[in-house]
Write a protein that binds this DNA or RNA. Structure first.
Lengths: 145, 145
DNA sequence: GTCTAGACGTAATGTTATAACGTCTTGATC
DNA sequence: GATCAAGACGTTATAACATTACGTCTAGAC
C-alpha cells in the first residue's frame, strides 16, 4: 500500500493525514464557507461520523494556514492565497451576505496599523480577525440602482 | 407609576425597555465580555428566564451601538466609547486571552483602508469586524522574561 | 521490545442561537 | 372610545456549533 491517499486530485502538503486531506479537499471544492457540520455531512460517505473528527482536522489546517476560520460566520474556508500559509500576518475577508462568496485579501497597511497600536498600548497580539460583511460586486449590482 | 425603571444607577438612553436596560446594566458592570447565557444567569433574579429575552435585548443594543458583539468570543461588551454610538464606523477590539479584558479603539486609517479596498473591489460593506487576540500589557508583563 | 507522542474513533455533553407560537401594551386613526 | 398595527414580551422547543473524556492504534525514538 504505497499510496493510501490515492484518488485525490490535488496535494497541498505532503504530510497531511487522511482526515485533514478530506476536510481540506471539501473546503477546496466549496463555493462558500462551510460549517464544521456541513463538512461532516459531506464526508459521511468517506466514513467520518463525529464532529470531533472534523474539528480536529480543522484545528491543524488553520494552524498551518491552509484553511481559515471566519469568526463572524462560525464557518471555514480553504486558504485562497499560497503566500499566507503560516506567516503570522493578518488576512482580511470580505463576505457576501447574499451569495456567501468570500474574498480573501491582505492589506499590509492595516496589519501595520494594528501592530503599531498594539506596540503603543503594550498589547501583545497573537492573532487578528478582520472581516467585512456586505454585498459583493455582483450581488450589489443585481439589487440596487 | 411615573418611573417604572427606578432603582438603576445610570441612564444611557431614554427609550430603552426594561429588558434592554437590565442587559446593558449587566454588561456595564462586567469586567470582561459576557455571553448571552452569562447575562441570563445574572438576571434570573430580575425575572428573566429564557435566552431569547437576552438575545432580543442584545440585538437592539448592538443595533444602536450601545453594546458590541465580539465575534471571536461569541460574547458581548458594553460600548466604551460614547462617540461610536450609531455611527457606521469600524471599531476595533483588543482582547486579552488571559484576563479577558477588552480594549476598544478606533483607527480611522484602518477603516479608511478597508473602505478603499471595498470601493476598488466593488464590495459594498455593511459591517466590519476587527479583533486582536493576545495578551494585554499587564498579563504579558507577568509572563514574559 | 518498549515507550511515547500524536492521530484517531466514539459517546456523551456543553454552549450558543433561533423558530414558532400567542399575549400585552402603545399609539395612530377613525 | 373602538379598532388596528407595530413592536416588545414570555414560553417552549429545537437547531446549530463546539468540547470533554476515554480508550485504541500506529509510527518513530531509544
Amino acid at each position: 500500500m504505497a499510496d493510501s491517499h490515492a484518488g485525490h486530485d490535488h496535494v497541498w502538503a505532503d504530510d497531511l493525514t487522511r482526515n485533514q486531506e478530506l476536510v481540506l479537499g471539501t473546503l477546496a471544492h466549496a463555493t462558500a464557507p462551510l460549517s464544521a457540520y456541513d463538512i461532516l455531512d459531506r464526508l459521511r460517505d468517506e466514513g467520518l461520523r463525529a464532529p470531533l473528527q472534523v474539528y480536529r482536522a480543522l484545528d491543524k489546517l488553520t494552524e498551518r494556514g491552509l484553511a481559515h476560520r471566519l469568526e463572524s460566520l462560525n464557518a471555514f474556508v480553504c486558504c485562497a492565497d499560497a503566500h499566507c500559509h503560516g506567516d503570522g500576518g493578518s488576512t482580511a475577508f470580505a463576505i457576501c451576505d447574499r451569495c456567501g462568496k468570500v474574498e480573501e485579501f491582505a492589506e499590509p497597511a492595516i496589519d501595520s496599523k494594528l501592530r503599531s497600536w498594539s506596540k503603543a498600548s503594550g498589547f501583545v497580539p497573537a492573532r487578528m480577525t478582520i472581516e467585512i460583511r456586505g454585498l459583493c460586486k455582483e450581488c450589489s449590482a443585481s439589487r440596487g440602482p
